[in-house]
Design a protein around this nucleic acid. Sequence first.
DNA 1: AGCACA
Length: 447
Amino acid sequence: MASVSSQPQFRYTQPPSKVLHLRNLPWECTEEELIELGKPFGKVVNTKCNVGANRNQAFIEFADLNQAIAMISYYASSSEPAQVRGKTVYLQYSNRQEIVNNKTTADVAGNVLLVTIEGEDARLVSIDVLHLVFSAFGFVHKITTFEKTAGFQALVQFSDTETASSAKNALDGRSIPRYLLPEHVGPCTLRITYSAHTDLSVKFQSHRSRDYTNPYLPVAPSAIDGNGQLTVGLDGKKLEPESNVLLASIENMQYAVTLDVLHMVFSAFGPVQKIAMFDKNGGVQALIQYPDVQTAVVAKEALEGHCIYDGGFCKLHISYSRHTDLSIKVNNDRSRDYTIPNNPVVNSQPSILGQQPVSGMGPTVQYNGATFTPTPEQPAMPQPSAGWGPGVPPMHQSMPMQMHSNPYMPPGTMLPQVAPGMMQSSIQSGMPQPSMLPPPYGSGQMR
DNA sequence: AGCACA
C-alpha cells in the first residue's frame, strides 16, 4: 500500500512483478486471448482487459514471478513481438504486485446493462438515441438515465441476459453514430458493464426514464414543455424539443448544395427567415429558421430522410436545433438573412435575384445555367424566394457512370409532395435536377 | 504505446 503510493506513476523500466502490463491491444481483447498469450510462460492466474482510457491495455498475472520474468525476457530478445490477433502488443512489468478483483459484480452477466456515455457532450445524448441504439439487439424494456461522478450513465433493461450480452459485446467501446446525434455534439463513446439490477423501476415516462413495456405509464410533468406540448412521445420517439429552427445535414452530397437550393427546398413549407450553412464532420449542415415552430415541424416531417436529388443524392437529415433565432452576421454564399431587405451581400456583385453572390464560390454545380429563375412564391415574405423554373429537364443522362451503379436508391426520392398549402408548381415538377456533371470532387470520393 | 478498480 504505502510502497505503491510512494512510487512514481510509471518508469521506463519497472522492477519485476508477476503482473504484466500490456498495451496497444486490439480493442475488445478477451481474457482468453490474454491467457493464450501468457500460457507458454507459466500459469496465468488472473487477467484484466479493457483497461485504460482507450481500453486497449490489460494485465496478466502469473502464479509465479519467474514466469512473468520468462515472458518479458522472451519477448525482449525475440524477433517476433508479442501479438494478439496480429497486432503487436507491448509488455512490461506492472507497477502493481497483483491484479485486484477482476471479477466484480459488474462482470456478472445480467439482463440490465450499465452504460456510461463518455464524451464532452455525453449528457446531450437523448434517451431516444440510446433506445434506438440498443433496440438493434432486441426489445428494450426500460431505460433510466442519471448523472453520477462517472458521468452520464444509463441502465438499459433487456428481456434476458443473452440479449443484453449481445448488445454489450457489440457496443462496448463503440461510439454512437454521428448521424444519430444532434448538432455540434462531439463523439460519445459507450462503456458498458452489467448492472446488478434485474428490473428497473420506472415511475414516469420522462426525459430521464422510459418504460417501453407500458405505454400507459403517466408522463412526468417535467416532460411537458411550457406550451403544454409533449416533448416525450409515449412510444419513446421524439424527445427532441421542437423548434422553429431546423438543423439539416446533407448526406451523400454528390452535388453541391447551395444556399439557394436549400432556400428553395425549405421555402416550400413557409417563409424561410434565415439560413446558415457550415461544415461539420466532413459534411455540410445548415440551420434553417422559420418564423414559427409549426412550419418547421411540417417541413421536418416532409423532408426528413428525403433526397434533394433523384438517385439518393444529397439526402437530408433533419432535427430541431436548439437555436430559436440565428445570428447572421453577413449575407454570403453560406449564410443569409432573408428578413432584411437589401442586406448587403459580401460579394457586392448582384445576381439574378439581386442578392445572389455568384462569384467567390467554390466549385459548384451549375444548375442549368440561367434557368435558375426567381419565382415569386411567398407573398408574405419580404422578398421572393427562389424556385426552379418549371422547364428544367432531368439530367440523368448526363450523370457519370458511377452514379448509375450507386446501390443507394431509396424507394421514394425527395419531392416534398406534401407541403400543405404551400406547394408551388416549381416544386411539384420535382426537386432541382442537377443539370450538369457534378463538380470534380464528386467523382472518386463516393466509391 | 505507458497502469484498472472498489
